[in-house]
Design a binder for these strands. Structure first.
Lengths: 321, 321
DNA sequence: GGGCTTGTGGCCGATATATGTCCACAAGTC
DNA sequence: GACTTGTGGACATATATCGGCCACAAGCCC
């Protein structure tokens, strides 16, 4: 074993347990304690914050430092990380999607097929997302990471895109950026067939595959990718733009609704809210959980849906005789 | 720069971009191309799947391999990973909590304070979890990882525990295991003051801190930690054990309820459900979203709460004049 | 095929590094 | 004070590293 691998091995050991006596480490690495000391010295010179304690029960330990060392992960841990990042990109997280995507790209790129398959199978049997927020924007990891890698490497990709009308068509694009807008991921790309910029909802993309050919990145016709996507999708109406008047102070309502909709005060005790929802269940939950008198103005299907909820709940909650 | 750091640096570069021409890598590492070749050789001997392409547009690239190499992450990426893992441990994920926790422990252990603070602040301004599923089992990352690290290192910990009645008391324990049961994390530990085994809900633990003293692990009085926790908490009743009769086939209802409750068929068109909920909003959502006639039997506060929802929704959804 | 680019790998010699052993010492615990 | 455990200097020896040089192989473009 060379010195380089030994350093990595040592790092892995130090990451797996907090406390290591010197003789134990030396034994595991099959070197003398003197050499181990020198290895530790080297790591410390590289900035790794390894502290040592002397005396009975002494030993070495890795503590938080100034920079982030390379992580030596087990397969299970890697799988867990990918699952977690997937959750972040498709959930209502405040974390930047950029960081999550680049981390996922790094991991997936070197992930053995075996583990990748395990992740896929975990997703396949995943619970059907009872919770309406998480139901938004579910994507398969494979396509998502393919797109992320292709963006990073300026590589042409092909995929199948399900349009709003439900038709599926093959697309070949130069991917430019993936951004999250309103809890949903969008791919900004130059569509080769249409010879123009397009935005694609990532959760409607399937079977993404890299072609292997790279391209020279083209400047985006906007300064901020997020603003670009917003402008593009702003034209399209939300599926259920629920409008309602709530008999509660705007401040309190805004706290509850958070960033799922807009709140405008009418007076001190009432306000107008608008929630752009894709699921009527979700919209109903938002309205119902407000715990304040409310009047829903539209759209009609949302009114009908909520009325049905109301009827069911009222009918089902008579006091037992 | 020594050869060891250069190997790490090279690894980082290869993880950050797919394609690297040899001269570019050599320039970045400030070595000759000949030396770079030898470095690549070394990495390949260590099992890294670096492939090279010759000819115009050739270069080196890192591809998926048989084992997982150490990951060189940026600070943003590390923060994203921790957030994602946090999501996994406290959400309705199928991923094993064990792997997520050990990964989190590894990362957090070496995480510079600066990044740790950023994660904390992100959590602080996080949306107040409008979605009821995610609201279950929220924990602060600091306490959770402290416990995970203490379990790993068999180190005594102290923390403040809020009991079911709302009182907070200081505890000193020998942590043994963290398990997830029904979307909630539990710490199994030997309570030093009570001199007996106890299970603690991790989301009720605050201000966890390691004492620095280690202990000899004690065998758990059960074979399977998960079963042990189940047996312990099985005795305690849920906060709101909502019972209801639903006018829909048991199969369909079970699909909707998933694993949030139990479903027992009565006949082909109706069934009895029981949902153990801690939040009345969540219980109401489960019942309301069923889209079937329902009769709620109890508990009384749940009935009252749902009736209020029903009234609000009915009153607020009259057709506009 | 010819010219071009780019990676491969062998060889050499000067230099730097790694390693083990021995030892005196420092800083903790009991 | 005895014991444990990490620290670091010295030294001799074996081995690795590095750059430069060169012939070659494999891909691309004309």
């Amino acid at each position: 074993m060379s010195t380089g691998t030994r350093a990595l091995e040592l790092l892995g050991l130090l990451q797996n347990r907090r406390h290591w006596p010197s003789h134990e480490l030396a034994r595991r690495l099959s070197v003398s304690q003197r050499t181990l000391r020198r290895d530790i010295d080297r790591l410390q010179e590289l900035g790794y914050p390894i502290t040592a304690t002397r005396g009975t029960g002494g030993g070495y330990q890795l503590s938080p430092g100034a920079s982030l060392p390379p992580l030596v992960l087990s397969e299970d841990e890697a799988a867990a990380i990918v699952m977690g990042l997937q959750e972040i990109t498709s959930g209502p997280s405040l974390m930047s999607a950029d960081a999550a995507l680049s981390a996922m790209a790094k991991i997936v790129q070197v992930l053995p097929v075996r583990i990748r398959r395990r992740i896929d199978s975990l997703r396949a049997v995943a619970v059907p997302a009872r919770n309406p927020a998480a139901r938004v924007g579910i994507t398969d990891v494979a396509s998502l990471t393919t797109l992320a890698l292709a963006c990073r490497d300026t590589e042409t990709v092909e995929f199948a895109y399900r349009s709003r009308t439900g038709q599926t068509a093959a697309r070949t694009v130069h991917p430019h950026h993936i951004v999250r807008v309103e809890n949903r991921l969008y791919l900004i790309a130059w569509d080769l067939d249409r010879a123009d910029w397009r935005t694609f909802r990532v959760d409607r993309i399937g079977d993404a595959s890299r072609t292997g050919t790279t391209f020279a990145p083209r400047p985006l016709p906007a300064d901020d990718p997020v603003e670009y996507v917003r402008a593009r999708i702003g034209a399209m109406p939300a599926r259920y733009p629920v409008r309602a008047t709530v008999g509660a102070p705007a401040e309190r309502v805004r706290e509850e609704i958070a960033h799922y909709g807009t709140v405008e005060p009418i007076d001190d005790t009432s306000c107008r809210v608008e929630i752009a929802a894709d699921s009527l269940d979700w919209a109903t939950f938002c309205i119902g959980a407000l715990d304040a008198p409310v009047v829903v103005h539209g759209p009609p299907e949302a009114i009908a849906y909520m009325r049905a909820w109301g009827r069911r709940l009222t009918a089902g909650t008579q006091e037992p005789p």
